Computed example of a mutant assay.
Amino acid sequence: MDAATIGAVLALVGVLSGSAVAYLGKRGENATARFNSVTDQVQEELARAKTERDTARAELAVLQQQRKDDLIEIARLQIKVIQLGGEP
């Protein structure tokens, strides 16, 4: 083979390997972008779930306090019924 042929073959190999590197690099970039997008979505869902959990806990605390208040009122009324001579 003469020098021109060897040079052409080396140039072809260089171009093909450069194309392969560019293709794989772009695929990696796209994969990283998708991964970051999914990670952001998961973090947003986690934050929303924590907010919903905190809201549910607050509502539960209110209901528990209301139940305690109702039990106290029931006991007070039972005492009042007994004082008036009735059966609770």
Rank of each mutant, 00 (worst) to 15 (best):
M1Q: 02
D2Q: 05
A3H: 08
A4V: 14
T5R: 05
T5S: 10
I6V: 15
I6G: 00
I6R: 01
I6W: 02
G7D: 10
G7W: 00
G7T: 09
A8R: 07
A8L: 10
A11D: 10
L12S: 15
L12H: 07
V13M: 12
G14F: 04
S19T: 12
S19G: 15
A20V: 13
A22D: 06
Y23S: 08
L24Q: 14
G25Y: 06
K26T: 14
G28W: 01
E29N: 07
N30Y: 07
N30I: 13
A31L: 09
A31N: 09
A33D: 04
R34D: 11
F35R: 10
F35Y: 09
S37Q: 12
T39W: 08
D40A: 15
Q41D: 14
V42I: 13
V42E: 04
V42Y: 03
Q43H: 08
E44M: 08
E44F: 03
L46P: 03
A47N: 11
A47P: 03
A47V: 09
R48I: 08
R48D: 10
A49K: 00
K50Y: 02
E52H: 05
E52R: 02
E52T: 00
R53A: 01
R53Y: 01
T55W: 04
T55D: 11
A56Q: 03
R57H: 10
R57Q: 12
A58F: 08
L60A: 15
A61C: 06
V62D: 03
V62S: 04
V62L: 10
V62I: 13
Q66A: 15
Q66E: 15
K68I: 13
K68H: 10
D69N: 15
D70K: 13
L71A: 12
L71M: 11
E73K: 11
I74N: 08
L77G: 01
L77E: 08
L77T: 07
I79T: 11
I79M: 01
I79R: 07
K80R: 14
V81L: 09
I82Q: 02
Q83M: 10
Q83P: 03
Q83N: 11
L84P: 01
L84R: 08
L84S: 12
G85I: 05
G85Q: 01
G86D: 04
G86H: 04
E87L: 12
E87Y: 04
E87G: 00
P88M: 10
P88I: 13
